[in-house]
């Protein structure tokens, strides 16, 4: 099945491809941040299209917190191999050596060290001047005003007041040495668009998105999967096998599963259309405060 020619998906596809080509043409050293999730899968698929028959003229980079689901890591390595792309994996070594983890250090400190700091380290280490990310404007309120080219200072800070106006499809890619941009080619896609496109284009995704019996514990009303032995159980707590899937993927201790029987893409879409909570609900780091995403972004988070 492929998408009809003048459909909204085709228009979104063309827009994303145009953005990627523009960045590849104007920046010296771009990179694609590959987070292994469904949005990254779509973004990567679009990059393969944008530069076909050439390979995308930039590497993929995964910021590995060491707490990702095992199936994500397998999928990541398979994908890079299958497509013949360069993959950079970066971990904040200092954080890992100090044993920073989401249990003892709290989700916000952990995210700061193992994701935000790690990302900054990696961008500095390789001198990337443009980094593609799969964020969408419909995910969260402060993202609704995010530009497609999101300008970052040399210390990776984001100032909502000094973002450049974006008119038509004309992007201003001028940056000084040390400054960079984050680029969001999927800005105008919604969660539903992503799923429909995955279905129409037959894009491979991590199996965790499909329902299967998995070992979980229930904590504060959230189902957490016991992906390995590092998840220390509370006294009396016992993993149960439940049929669950994930609407969003991240670090397994911070990503809640939902009970579901959806094992096919049409079932996932059907479930989405009848869903009563948004996908970010499964992300435990957004809950602190309604403006928490904005705060994190000012500090350099994606």
């Amino acid at each position: 099945m492929s998408v009809a020619r003048h459909s909204h998906l085709k228009r979104l596809e063309a827009e994303s491809i145009r953005i990627m080509r523009e960045v590849a043409a104007e920046f010296d050293n771009p990179v694609m941040l590959y987070s292994i999730g469904k949005d990254s899968s779509v973004m990567l698929h679009l990059a393969m299209k944008a530069f076909y028959p050439a390979k995308p003229p930039f590497p993929l980079m995964h910021v590995d917190t060491t707490w990702k689901f095992r199936q994500m890591i397998e999928f990541r390595d398979d994908t890079a191999r299958r497509l013949g792309l360069d993959l950079i994996v970066h971990t904040n070594k200092e954080g890992a050596d100090n044993g920073v983890n989401p249990f003892q250090h709290g989700s916000s400190y952990y995210t700061q060290i193992m994701k935000t700091e790690a990302l900054k380290q990696a961008l500095d280490k390789y001198g990337f001047d443009a980094a593609f990310g799969g964020a969408r404007r419909d995910e969260e309120k402060s993202r609704a005003k995010e530009r497609i080219y999101s300008f970052r200072t040399s210390s990776h800070g984001w100032d909502p007041k000094s973002q450049r106006p974006e008119l038509w499809s004309l992007f201003n890619g001028k940056v000084k040495r040390g400054e960079s941009i984050r680029v969001f080619p999927l800005s105008n896609w919604t969660e539903l668009d992503i799923w429909q496109y995955i279905m129409a284009e037959d894009i491979p995704i991590v199996p965790l998105y499909f329902a299967a019996p998995r070992p979980v514990v229930s904590r504060d009303g959230q189902l957490i999967m016991v992906d390995d032995e590092r998840l220390s159980l509370y006294p009396g707590e016992k993993p149960q096998t439940r049929v669950v899937r994930f609407r969003t993927l991240g670090c397994y201790p911070l990503t809640a599963a939902i009970e579901s029987t959806a094992t096919t893409l049409p079932e996932i879409v059907a479930e989405m259309l009848t869903a009563r909570t948004s996908e970010r609900q499964g992300r435990l780091i957004d809950h602190d405060d309604s403006a928490s995403m904005e705060k994190k972004k000012r500090e350099g988070y994606f």
Binding site: A4, H6, M199, S260, P266, E267, V269, E271, T274
Partner: peptide, 22 residues
């Protein structure tokens, strides 16, 4: 959701969603 996904009309519905305009 599973009932919905299995429904033939839902398949048509999905197809129309993929082909809608912007």
């Amino acid at each position: 959701a599973a009932t919905l996904a299995a429904d033939e009309a839902f398949g048509e519905y999905l197809a129309s969603h993929e082909n809608k305009g912007l």
